[in-house]
Amino acid sequence: MPKTLIIDDDPEFESHIREYFGGESGNAEHAFVFANDSAHALSLMAELDDIDIAVVSIDSKDIGGLSIFQKMKGKRLRVPRIAVTSSRDLPSIRTAMNQGAVDFLTKPVSMDDLLATLGKVFADCEIRRKAWRTEAQLSAIRREMDLAGSIQKRILPDQFPNSQDLEVFAQTTPAQEMGGDFYDFFDLDDGTIAIVVADVSGKGVPAAFYMAVVRTLFRATAPALKGPAACLSEVNRLLIGHNIPGMFVTAFYGILNPETWEFSFANGGHLPPYLVRGNGEIVAVEDGGGVVLGFEHGVPYQQDSLSIEKGDALFIYTDGLTEAFDLERNPFSEERLMDCLLENRSLSAHALTNNVFAFVSGHTDGAPQSDDITSFVIKRF
Results as ranks from 00 to 15, higher is better:
residue 201 S to G: 08
residue 203 K to D: 07
residue 152 Q to V: 02
residue 187 D to E: 14
residue 137 Q to W: 00
residue 194 A to S: 12
residue 220 A to S: 14
residue 182 F to Y: 13
residue 206 P to D: 10
residue 153 K to H: 10
residue 168 V to H: 01
residue 164 Q to L: 11
residue 218 F to N: 07
residue 189 D to N: 12
residue 184 D to P: 01
residue 163 S to M: 06
residue 198 A to M: 05
residue 136 A to D: 13
residue 149 G to K: 07
residue 189 D to G: 08
residue 218 F to A: 07
residue 221 T to A: 13
residue 182 F to R: 06
residue 176 Q to W: 06
residue 146 D to E: 15
residue 174 P to S: 09
residue 165 D to R: 13
residue 175 A to P: 01
residue 155 I to Q: 10
residue 189 D to L: 07
residue 157 P to W: 05
residue 196 V to S: 03
residue 186 F to H: 10
residue 160 F to T: 10
residue 162 N to C: 09
residue 210 Y to G: 05
residue 144 E to D: 15
residue 157 P to Q: 10
residue 220 A to F: 05
residue 209 F to M: 15
residue 207 A to Y: 07
residue 209 F to Q: 10
residue 214 V to I: 10
residue 139 S to W: 00
residue 213 V to W: 00
residue 217 L to E: 14
residue 193 I to Y: 04
residue 185 F to S: 07
residue 182 F to M: 11
residue 207 A to V: 05
residue 169 F to P: 03
residue 163 S to N: 14
residue 164 Q to F: 05
residue 179 G to Q: 07
residue 221 T to P: 00
residue 148 A to M: 05
residue 139 S to E: 15
residue 142 R to Q: 14
residue 184 D to K: 02
residue 215 R to N: 15
residue 177 E to M: 11
residue 203 K to P: 03
residue 191 G to Y: 04
residue 137 Q to H: 07
residue 213 V to L: 15
residue 194 A to P: 04
residue 219 R to H: 11
residue 180 G to F: 02
residue 164 Q to R: 13
residue 183 Y to N: 09
residue 182 F to D: 05
residue 161 P to L: 05
residue 182 F to Q: 04
residue 180 G to R: 08
residue 139 S to D: 13
residue 175 A to H: 02
residue 217 L to W: 06
residue 192 T to Q: 12
residue 219 R to Q: 14
residue 178 M to L: 14
residue 196 V to A: 13
residue 198 A to K: 04
residue 212 A to T: 15
residue 220 A to K: 11
residue 168 V to C: 14
residue 136 A to N: 13
residue 146 D to P: 00
residue 190 D to Y: 02
residue 158 D to M: 09
residue 155 I to K: 01
residue 168 V to N: 01
residue 176 Q to F: 10
residue 217 L to V: 03
residue 151 I to S: 03
residue 144 E to Q: 12
residue 157 P to V: 06
residue 147 L to H: 10
residue 217 L to K: 08
residue 163 S to K: 08
residue 138 L to C: 02
residue 176 Q to G: 01
residue 218 F to I: 04
residue 169 F to Y: 15
residue 181 D to P: 03
residue 169 F to H: 15
residue 171 Q to G: 01
residue 180 G to K: 06
residue 204 G to E: 08
residue 159 Q to N: 11
residue 185 F to Q: 09
residue 159 Q to F: 01
residue 190 D to C: 03
residue 146 D to A: 09
residue 195 I to H: 02
residue 160 F to I: 06
residue 158 D to E: 13
residue 201 S to V: 14
residue 207 A to K: 07
residue 165 D to Y: 03
residue 210 Y to K: 09
residue 175 A to W: 00
residue 167 E to L: 00
residue 205 V to F: 12
residue 206 P to G: 09
residue 191 G to F: 01
residue 177 E to L: 08
residue 168 V to T: 14
residue 151 I to D: 06
residue 150 S to T: 15
residue 151 I to V: 15
residue 178 M to Q: 06
residue 177 E to C: 04
residue 152 Q to H: 09
residue 178 M to N: 02
residue 143 R to K: 12
residue 214 V to M: 07
residue 205 V to Y: 09
residue 157 P to F: 04
residue 181 D to R: 07
residue 139 S to Q: 14
residue 146 D to T: 10
residue 142 R to H: 12
residue 153 K to L: 04
residue 197 V to K: 03
residue 217 L to T: 08
residue 208 A to F: 08
residue 171 Q to K: 15
residue 197 V to G: 04
residue 189 D to P: 00
residue 219 R to K: 15
residue 174 P to T: 10
residue 198 A to E: 09
residue 216 T to S: 15
